[in-house]
Design a binder for these strands. Structure first.
Lengths: 355, 355
DNA sequence: GTTAGCACTCAATCTCTCTGAGTGCTAAGC
DNA sequence: GCTTAGCACTCAGAGAGATTGAGTGCTAAC
């Protein structure tokens, strides 16, 4: 059977209406729409065809039709109209973003909260690092009898440090020597180069300071490994319960259980090679728990070798056009914000962890 | 009317049973309990009295009784039996804790998740700093033409750093001078000492390096302020829906909305002066959204000037004895873990933020 | 190809009754 | 004077029909 233009128009109207009402859509409702100059019987025939083709489903005989996953897919890819953000919407998104974002983890949390607020749905926000970091330079600063500070400049232009306390005397001279050794042997190595063999080699060259080596090597490897880690936050889970499909507690619970950082950790991978805004409809999903939801995600650039991602989780019947529009605008604004010219007066980014 | 011993026994039995069943408790059920050698009629009289005294409530005439907030209060403070953890329980808590916890923010998240798992309820975990930090020492390391690294050792024994890039040449000599000035004027000052006046004083002494001062002063003030900040995580919100009282979506939604970091930020303050495990029953609450829940919280010591806190949010009818027991055990284990003798082989704590 | 008409289906809603758990009160018993 | 058996009363909740109405598929006429 062929998917005529009229069939597409009918399908589109059905999805639109279903998105608004969350109720199965009947032939009469479609026939009565302004641009639809056919009787309900005709629409009924078309609907029967669309059902046969797999774009619609019928909860039970005497109910209207509901879009199937394939129906949504078609809608998202071809049929849906662009949603234009109102000035009010852009303004409220903008001023939400304006606030300073300092640490990455806090930033990720805040972005998640903002996105959730802007879309009235649970939101995810991720910051992940591209590629492996290496150490560009080591410095050691004596800090007291048995303690010194290890400072590492990374290839990402970040600086990482650690106060190391040992139950033995540390001399200024040892540190000087050790720093030289470290800079000679351990710079420009990625995380997986930190093997026991390397450790031995470094210890051999370190001479009288050999006892300090293990702590440093372990720590360095740890930091590099951690550089590849991703930061993720979820916010606004409770908003899911605003959606009529989750008035059913068991459904709601299943989805809410799936809405934590651990279960969602597979999402960034899906976006890896994708660009622009991505819509995952129901069954295409990663996490089992989310099988009757949809996820809309989009990437953006944070700068400093970081890759940002924001996304929204909602019922399969969500207003894709609106959500996509808001998400894209959000992503664009965030990209701009993070990549705007640096102002020398202000710290451009912060490497602290107020433990 | 006097609260006789028998009345207390009846009340206790009612709360116990209600905690188990989540159903209003009738006189017959109490009368049939092993140690209760009275007829249901007698119990009925006692229940009528307890209702008059405000410890019980009646959903409707022909239903049983339900404990009121006052009833729970009395139960928690006086009546409830100690719950002994089974070996299995302690073991599973222990091995959950065993995993290494590295960064504070990650640690807080993980603890929240563990606590939630151990109690089957949504959990909160907080790490907050006691008292104001100061800088003990400044170091400046030249890192390139227009950039240098600022390293600060704090009174908390933490080390914080920042790579500063400026659109001007920086000389080794300037940095030496500046470091001396900073160490002379800006050490041992708490966050609120960082006024514009201080900035001017420092700039005056900094001589040729004066242009570097603003960035440094701002950053330092910022770090010190941030040192007082608290880290909070919430986990397992979805578990709330396991509880029969939250089969009602609207109730569930209200509470879930209240279960985010922002709304709960008032909780730590409540614990400020309290010690041991604290039970907040319903109306005594901070957040409006949580008015028909209870919160059980307990403090523990993380070391390094950090104060930990874990808590659980659940229906007013939660198994206080069990939750309290698990929480206390958890807190104790965490205290032990964080304060165990340092092992020189391993980094004892980490000050990085892999932005 | 389109549409009016009609018989059919079936979830949802409403009404009504019934059931039983639970109560309060009274009067008899220890 | 405390305890208890007994009884009348209340009322939420479950279950059984009956009713409604939105929606369908099919057919025959336009």
């Amino acid at each position: 059977m062929e998917l005529t233009d009229r069939k597409k128009r009918v399908l589109r109207s059905i999805v639109d209406l279903y998105i608004r009402t969350a109720e199965p859509v009947g032939s009469k409702a479609i026939a009565e729409m302004p641009d639809m100059n056919y009787s309900s019987a005709t629409i009924r025939n078309e609907m029967a065809d669309l059902t046969a083709m797999g774009y619609l489903e019928q909860p039970h005989t005497s109910a209207g039709r509901v879009p199937s996953a394939a129906g949504y897919r078609l809608y998202v890819d071809e049929l849906m109209a662009d949603y234009r953000l109102s000035i009010d919407e852009t303004r409220s998104i903008n001023c939400a973003i304006e606030e300073k974002m300092q640490r990455v983890d806090k930033m990720v949390e805040k972005v998640a909260r903002l996105v959730s607020q802007a879309t009235d749905l649970p939101a995810i926000s991720v910051a992940s690092r591209r590629g492996g970091a290496t150490v560009k330079r080591f410095d050691l600063i004596l800090a007291g009898a048995g303690s010194f500070i290890l400072v590492m400049m990374l290839s990402t232009d970040e600086v990482v440090n650690k106060l190391i306390k040992l139950p033995l005397r540390v001399e200024e001279a040892d540190l000087k020597l050790l720093a030289a050794v470290l800079n000679a042997t351990m710079t420009d190595l990625s995380a997986d180069a930190f093997t026991p063999a390397l450790m031995e080699r470094v210890m051999a060259s370190a001479d009288s300071a050999a006892s300090l080596v293990p702590v440093i090597v372990d720590f360095t490897a740890d930091v590099l490994r951690r550089q590849n880690s991703t930061n993720m936050a979820v916010a606004g889970q409770a908003r899911l319960l605003d959606q009529p499909e989750y008035r059913n507690i068991d459904k709601a619970q299943r989805v809410l259980t799936g809405l934590d950082e651990e279960t969602l950790s597979g999402l960034p991978a899906v976006m890896q090679n994708a660009s622009g805004t991505q819509v995952l409809v129901g069954p295409e999903h990663v996490a089992q728990e989310l099988k009757d939801t949809s996820v809309v995600m989009t990437k953006f650039d944070i700068g400093d070798g970081l890759q940002g991602m924001i996304g929204v989780v909602g019922p399969t019947r969500m207003d894709y056009a609106k959500v996509t529009a808001r998400l894209s605008y959000f992503a664009e604004s965030l990209s701009k914000m993070f990549n705007k010219p640096e102002q020398p007066q202000l710290p451009e980014h912060t490497d602290i962890d107020p433990k």
